[in-house]
Design a protein around this nucleic acid. Structure first.
Lengths: 194, 194
DNA sequence: TCCGATATATATCGAACTGATATAGCTATT
DNA sequence: AATAGCTATATCAGTTCGATATATATCGGA
């Protein structure tokens, strides 16, 4: 899924600026399973505008740089829905430096191993809390996305959020149950080597 | 973590060709949490050779293209271990077209939603089986990696594999428990709209 | 009160990486 | 006997990331 398609999807929830779209991928609805940087979002919006799939209203703000508020055209909406029907979704990919590094636990000091595991746990803890669909702290369009007019989150988003939480919680549980075991094995291994 | 570092890590388990290194990221030890394509591995190996971090022995095969079997130099090994100690691991990132698409479940036919969920489950089912550290089906250096001389997998790899399995299993469990509920909600929603 | 940090907002660019393609011979299946 | 798929290396166009530049506003702390 290229950034153009991701932007169309982001705008399905209503109008947004490029900056707000990035927030959806950084902190918001999509942050747990898609990424897009500003460096790709702005060119994508420009291209989409050229192709007539989105338009924008330029808001001249007092003492601020102009704000371009983008929204889907009917053609853009149709294109996105067609893409949903036709696209064979790419394989999921999970990328983790920490897990890669932990693969070499035998080669590094035990304190580093423990620190890496703790950081992994902390990040997942934070993510689990952040995913909570009841968490409406973050105001603005970034979090209103995926909710209908009454502010009720839609079923698809709830399902995806719940799945994300289940994954985080499983991770935390596994770490709680296996961290000490791993550290002990490593200590034994290091003792044997001497 | 750039591909050069990933290649050094891959070669920590012993010698390998570029093709075999890709297999480690495609099917092997690293496949569940790191990605690297041939288009980045070959240039990385060239660069690492220039920098003296790896060397290769060229095996002229009968009736086959030459095979370059790469291995770490002492300098390469030192560099990799130093990197492990010094690198602040990047944030984990999980990328899933299917979850992104499911976010728009309300906008698409229920059969498609169900098909996407089933595919998601099937992929995770397969992954969970493939991760199994006891699974020694795939012979060759791609799977011997992460095992010591006796063929016993090392503690770090076991931990990471177990974690991957726990995540997969949590995903499958969540789907089993919530798929029907989501589909029913969607049906209700679609009925309301009419 | 003033400073520094953070947030809003757009834009651009080099470096890195993916995915596709080319080449070429072998092996297994139909 | 043919076709598809595997081993193996190499290259390249197009996409994307991450950093940087620009400009202003706001908020907390010294």
């Amino acid at each position: 899924m290229d950034v153009r398609t991701l932007c169309l999807g982001a705008l399905m929830g209503g109008e947004a600026t490029g900056y707000e779209i990035r927030k959806m991928f950084e902190d918001g609805t999509f942050s747990h399973f898609q990424i897009a940087s500003l460096g790709s979002i702005y060119p994508a919006l420009t291209k989409l505008t050229q192709d007539g799939l989105v338009t924008f209203v330029e808001h001249e703000q007092e003492n601020r740089p102009d704000k371009k508020i983008y929204h889907l055209t009917p053609e853009g909406r149709r294109t996105f829905l067609r893409t949903l029907l036709q696209t064979r979704p790419a394989e999921d990919r999970y990328r983790s430096d920490i897990l890669f590094m932990l693969t070499f636990a035998e080669e590094m000091p035990i304190e580093l191993t423990e620190a890496l595991i703790d950081e992994f746990a902390a990040r997942h803890q934070m993510m689990s809390l952040q995913i909570d669909p009841e968490n409406t702290d973050k105001a603005g369009s970034a979090s209103t996305y995926g909710r209908d007019e009454d502010g009720k989150p839609n079923p698809g988003c709830c399902f995806v959020a719940g799945l994300g939480q289940a994954m985080c919680d499983a991770t935390l549980k596994f770490i709680k149950e296996n961290k000490q075991g791993l550290l002990e094995e490593l200590r034994k291994f290091k003792a044997d080597k001497t």
